[in-house]
């Protein structure tokens, strides 16, 4: 835990220099999409509104965890910096999580702002928004594992950047567009995208009728996805070090 805190502190210090553009881009991007979709989707459907707001909120996390982390780990691999972490008594998963957590620290305001503004704009209840406390770290861990794996496995840092951006576009497309409106094939893809269950869990928080069972089910899947994604990232980390 001491090692994780130290890594987190170091990464926060490193990311602090970029916090303003990071906050700005992550927040404005999601708010912009939220407001844009206000004029496009059927706002009389509660389910659609819930998914749009939840998807936009998780997008803030995806921007950081997928896009920026893929870039960061691609750059670390290319510069040979992974040896430094590999020869410290900390696990690869701790390195991935600490880096993701450091970036995520600067996106919490953006995610909360997106959820609150979205709920107000789409007329959704805010009573269960506390669920963000669970959804954001779980979605962040799952997507961070995926983003770090992309960065660590990509043979070149440029490719890591492209893969991260493609991943974020996937989350954007599949996360925000209501499942019922997706073609059959994409509905199947949606079922295996790590962020789907975080979006679904958060969407449940905007319902007027709270369903504990469904929330627990979706959060359970989020936990499983996060554990699996971090395990994959750990393996990718070891593989990248030896490459």
């Amino acid at each position: 835990m001491n090692g994780f805190a130290a890594l987190y502190g170091g990464q926060v210090s490193r990311a602090r220099a970029a916090r303003v553009p990071l906050l700005f881009v992550a927040t404005l991007q999601s708010l912009g999409i939220l407001l844009l979709l206000r004029g496009v989707v059927d706002t009389t459907s509660d389910t659609t509104a819930q998914q749009v707001v939840a998807g936009s909120t998780v997008l803030v996390v995806a921007f950081v965890a997928l896009n920026l982390l893929a870039q960061r780990f691609g750059a670390l691999r290319a510069s040979g910096a992974l040896d430094h972490y590999a020869t410290l008594p900390v696990s690869g998963a701790a390195v991935v999580l600490a880096t993701a957590a450091a970036y995520a620290t600067f996106t919490v305001p953006g995610a909360v702002l997106t959820a609150v503004v979205g709920a107000l704009v789409y007329g959704l209840p805010l009573g269960h928004l506390w669920l963000l406390v669970l959804v954001l770290p779980l979605a962040g861990a799952g997507l961070a594992g995926l983003g770090a794996s992309l960065g660590l496995l990509a043979p070149r840092p440029e490719l890591a950047t492209v893969l991260g951006q493609l991943g974020m576009s996937g989350v954007l497309f599949i996360g925000i567009i209501p499942a019922a409106r997706l073609p059959e094939v994409l509905r199947a893809v949606r079922a295996v995208v790590p962020s789907t269950y975080a979006v679904d869990a958060l969407a449940l928080s905007f319902r007027t009728r709270w369903d504990t069972g469904l929330v627990i089910r979706d959060l359970g899947v989020c936990v499983a996805v996060a554990v699996a994604a971090l395990a994959v990232a750990s393996v990718a980390f070891r593989r990248a070090v030896r490459a």
Partner: peptide, 13 residues
């Protein structure tokens, strides 16, 4: 911070 964080990763308080 660089030196201190490495020390903490190696188990120092």
């Amino acid at each position: 911070l660089a030196v201190e964080s490495v020390g903490r990763c190696r188990g120092l308080s």
